[in-house]
Amino acid sequence: MYTQGLDQQSSEDKKKSARDSGSSEDAAALAAFQKRVEAEEKIEAKDWMPDAYRRTLVRQISQHAHSEIIGMQPEGNWLTRAPSLKRKAILLAKVQDEAGHGLYLYSAAETLGVSREQMVADLLSGKAKYSSIFNYPTLTWADIGAIGWLVDGAAIMNQVPLCRCSYGPYARAMVRVCKEESFHQRQGFEIMLELSRGSEQQKAMAQDALDRWWWPSLMMFGPSDTDSRHSAQSMAWKIKRFSNDELRQKFVDVTVPQAQFLGLRVPDDKLRWNDATEHYEFGEIDWQEFHDVLAGNGPCNRERMAKRRRAHDEGAWVREAAEAYALKQAERQAA
């Protein structure tokens, strides 16, 4: 689903970055690296790369992976209550895709030298961040539609340029992810379409979901460019191709006409088309809410983390059994 946390640096990272600025990393090697990046050559796992590039990628890719894993929860909430068998099968497939995306991304991060165990430990301890969007509750079935349409739509906006990221393993993982996201977004829009063509009650449900998910979806693009600490460096390294605000604008521009098609109202009084710029103008995001949710104080942060920890603990016996079985098989083969 998505990556926003890329702008969230841990205190450890900050210390390391401070050290780097006076580091002994060979200036010639740095220049050669930058030249490769600018020539649009892909950087592969075993190639030399600056420490800060490696750390930025580890942070971004692991946060992205964690987001996919936590992102299964809001939708998982409706698996047993989907309105039809067809919807249930589709939702199950989508949630399974999110797990798959998490795995592609963890694998990509591992190529940079960080272990899976470390990343999982960082998520469970609360040290690692994940996208703020998953800390909002899914109160009605329409929320499943809104998530597919808006949240996955925002994710696609973010992820398509990541397919051209300078780091090969991340770019390749994103190609797979993007192919699959497109089904996610369409199934969400279809749910919204059915509801908005349904009874007054169903239409109200769709409107309510849009009201609640619109602003959190815009927040998925991360802080505004003026406050985004890592954007410039990430752009220079060609990890990022567009700034947060550029992507947010693109998302608004393509999504507003879709809302109009659905006959739903985007909950923003300042929203209007600007003929001169050929873009929509929209209101200011509530950045206080954004920072609160990132800091762990959103509506569902504690619930999401508690559930993930419980799932990890309750799966311990399965992992142990698999290891015991593998050991037994190996011993038998040796005998």
């Binding site: 895709d97 798959g100 694998s107 899976r116 698999a322 098989q329 190996a330």
Partner: peptide, 24 residues
């Protein structure tokens, strides 16, 4: 090459590869 994964043994690696990389 499609990607990588962790598994306890060879058979699990094959099963997980199917579920992770060939869902479509």
């Amino acid at each position: 090459h499609a990607g990588s994964l962790h598994a306890a043994d060879d058979q699990m690696a094959l099963d997980h590869a199917r579920d992770t990389y060939t869902r479509r």
